[in-house]
Design a protein around this nucleic acid. Structure first.
Lengths: 245, 245
DNA sequence: AGATCTTTTGAACAGCGTTCATGATTTAGT
DNA sequence: ACTAAATCATGAACGCTGTTCAAAAGATCT
């Protein structure tokens, strides 16, 4: 930024050509800007025009590097899981390996606002994903899962992950919306949770006995806890197929 | 339709007022039209303007009955699960009960194009859903699940359902898109599946041994089969908690 | 320095959700 | 039956969206 405001000092110019005056637009820079806008404004407001504005550039300039918004979203998706790495199969610890993979994935997703929305729209079998799918398959197979289960276990898992995180971020989105309108409406997570819990507990007990009874458990637990429990349920289910081989 | 083109015959006019000449716009009619547009054009093209056109009415007329597009989508969502009914808990058959519920839900979703997209955006605890959640809880608890598991079992299940169906419909969407462009590109499901399978099988076997080995199983099975297997995995996982009570 | 090729621009198109004053139509009161 | 009141639908407008394209600007090479 400041590099292009200040003239380049002579002693730092060993290059033949004085380095391009204008920093050229690249895919990488566009993706960076897109993430900046996404994190600041959210998915709904992340328009091409906003991204261009972030770069101080005309909208149409983007289309020289990116064929459409869909492609940009795909690039963002790929960027996000660029550094994902799965361990080699360790049949003793396969459940823990999978859990760690899932938790890491969730952390990645949540590290960018509304990322789950973007992830959901992507085709599940992108070339960048193939190595990860391969490793997942390896882990499942070496754990002893029958092939027909191993073949779709990854599907089930990623479906759960995407779905869970998407729901999670939709909830967060609602909270922000509600907070924007009113002056005192900027209620945080705990307040909102308390409200819902109160609402559940106040339901007519004759028609909703179970909801009233479980109001605490349904709402009070953190998303981390619920995610882990869901993960555990799925892994137990998968494990139950091992003997059948 | 033809009722307003042809003058009303005198012998069929026992009403004081000759029945409103213009059929009044109602929420129900708007929802009907919205579904018509959705099924015909898909989610992306289902605009307020299209819905209004479907009714032969100005766009702004809709806003007298529906506060915003979000509300219309919510109404569509509620309409879809209006007739959902869950059985009373039968602890002997709880797994089969849940499976039937899930299969019925999936059928409903798939009966309207892109319905999963709409469903995903909805808050999970809408008043219309409460009775269903209550019954689900009843089934899970009477089956012997510990409370902390029963409380989020419904969450896990619906997350899986929504996620799975959404992925499913995104795939279908891609297929349609691809089919629209090219003349011979109108490839059906089986052709596409065969292509992907071929692609998997043709991967370098040294780097992707598991994918090559499981190419058939990963792609060849129908969505119904995969959905049922996923369901079974989750139910087995849930069942594994029963003893711990 | 001039010509070539790449990148960026600005304007435009068609469509979107939403609002609002105006005009039409149905309902209610006398 | 005729008028006053309330309801409903309209069309135009605002500000936004993704995307295209001829023209201008910039960098590169001879």
């Amino acid at each position: 930024m400041s590099q292009q405001d200040v003239p380049v000092p002579p002693w730092e110019r060993p290059r033949k050509r004085p380095a391009p005056a204008r920093v050229p637009l690249t895919r990488e820079r566009i993706i960076d800007a897109a993430f900046a806008v996404l994190d600041r404004e959210g998915y709904d407001k992340m328009s091409m025009r906003q991204v261009a504005a972030e770069l101080g550039v005309a909208v149409s300039a983007l289309y020289a590097h990116v064929s459409a918004k869909d492609e940009l979203l795909q690039l963002m998706y790929n960027r996000m899981l660029r550094s994902v790495e799965l361990p080699d199969p360790d049949p003793e610890n396969w459940q823990e390996q999978i859990k760690e993979f899932a938790r890491d994935g969730r952390t990645r997703m949540l590290s960018h606002r509304d990322m789950a929305r973007i992830s959901m729209e992507q085709t599940p079998f992108t070339p960048e994903l193939l190595p990860h799918i391969e490793k997942l398959l390896a882990i499942f197979r070496q754990a002893g899962l029958p092939d027909r289960v191993a073949a779709i276990a990854g599907d089930i898992l990623s479906t759960f992950m995407d779905g869970f995180i998407l729901q999670e971020s939709i909830w967060q989105g609602r909270r922000v919306e509600a907070g924007e309108s009113g002056g005192t409406g900027d209620k945080g997570w705990p307040e909102m949770r308390a409200e819902i819990q109160k609402y559940f507990a106040a339901l007519p007990a004759d028609r909703f006995p179970n909801m009233v009874a479980l109001a605490d458990l349904m709402v009070d637990e953190s998303n981390d806890y619920r995610f882990d429990l869901g993960l555990d349920i799925i892994l137990r289910g998968l494990a139950s197929y091992i003997e059948e081989k």
